[in-house]
């Protein structure tokens, strides 16, 4: 695909993933020259409804999101989900845990009838997603890699191993040794162990690996005096919409 027309869209989210595209800095001007950006509300006034590739940030949290996403799904040939909210529903799913109706009432009181809000879901619940740039936010290089791969016609490589592999490669001391919970053993890598590398437990913002060894994680937790509940609470931060199947031993 040469010089594809690209649209950057935001559903319900913080705009941080779109910001990471603007934060490409050294690569930003090359990026703008390599693709034809026809829609990017956060950065340009012009907008077009003809594009091949859609980069979508944010989760589906309103009926308005559903309408927009279904429209984008009809126009775009390739859909890239950018960031935790688009990929897994992300942190917005915490609202589902609280209860959407209850949340409307808490925040908007007797005016809750004015508010359009539905249970949060990842975009893959509504459209076919071709590639996932995971993370909160994804790394800039990963966004560029996916788009670059598409231009040269190869499949982008997304790691399917856990964050622990990256910590080992970097020579990080395991955070369990400091008594800190960490989702590293089951969380999908690709961020170069960004959080554990600065002594902060992995929060699995990239979701879990395809086939997480939940039992090994449980053993590890009990070895360090932690429980599954401790860790699930952390896992829920970005993955409350996702169910992890627990295999029987």
């Amino acid at each position: 695909m040469s010089k594809p027309k690209v649209g950057v869209f935001g559903l319900t989210g913080c705009g941080g993933c779109q910001l990471e595209v603007l934060n490409l800095e050294d690569q930003l001007i090359d990026f703008i020259n390599a693709v034809d950006i026809v829609h990017f509300t956060e950065a340009i006034s012009e907008h077009s409804d003809t594009y091949e590739v859609a980069l979508i940030e944010g989760s589906v949290s309103t009926m308005h999101d559903v309408e927009r996403l279904e429209h984008i799904g009809k126009v775009a040939k390739i859909i890239i989900a950018v960031g935790a909210c688009a990929c897994t529903g992300g942190l917005n799913c915490l609202k589902n845990l609280y209860g959407t109706e209850k949340a409307k009432e808490l925040v908007y009181g007797d005016k809750k009838g004015w508010i359009d809000a539905i249970d949060t879901k990842p975009i893959s619940e509504y459209v076919k997603v071709d590639y996932f740039a995971r993370g909160c936010p994804p790394t800039r290089s990963e966004i560029v890699d996916i788009v670059r791969s598409l231009i040269v016609g190869k499949t982008p490589e997304i790691p399917s191993y856990p964050v622990c592999v990256e910590c080992k490669r970097l020579g990080n001391t395991c955070l369990y040794e400091f008594g800190m919970p960490c989702m590293g053993p089951v969380a999908r890598a690709g961020c170069n162990a960004r959080c554990p590398s600065v002594k902060s437990g992995c929060e699995a913002c990239r979701g879990s690996i395809d086939d997480p060894n939940v039992n090994a994680q449980k053993d590890l937790l009990s070895q360090y005096g932690l429980t599954v509940e401790d860790i699930m609470e952390g896992f829920n931060l970005y993955n409350a919409c996702v169910k992890i199947e627990q295999k029987t031993k």
């Binding site: 559903l11 319900t12 913080c14 941080g16 944010g58 949290s61 309103t62 308005h64 999101d65 992300g90 942190l91 917005n92 915490l94 609202k95 609280y98 959407t100 209850k102 949340a103 409307k104 808490l106 925040v107 908007y108 508010i115 359009d116 809000a117 909160c136 929060e203 609470e233 931060l237």
Partner: peptide
Amino acid sequence: SPRFFEAMLVGRKYTEPSHITSR
């Protein structure tokens, strides 16, 4: 879209609000 952070925060441990509200 409304985000309902005031609701998301209810029940969360004191270590988490800064990570949640950052978003």
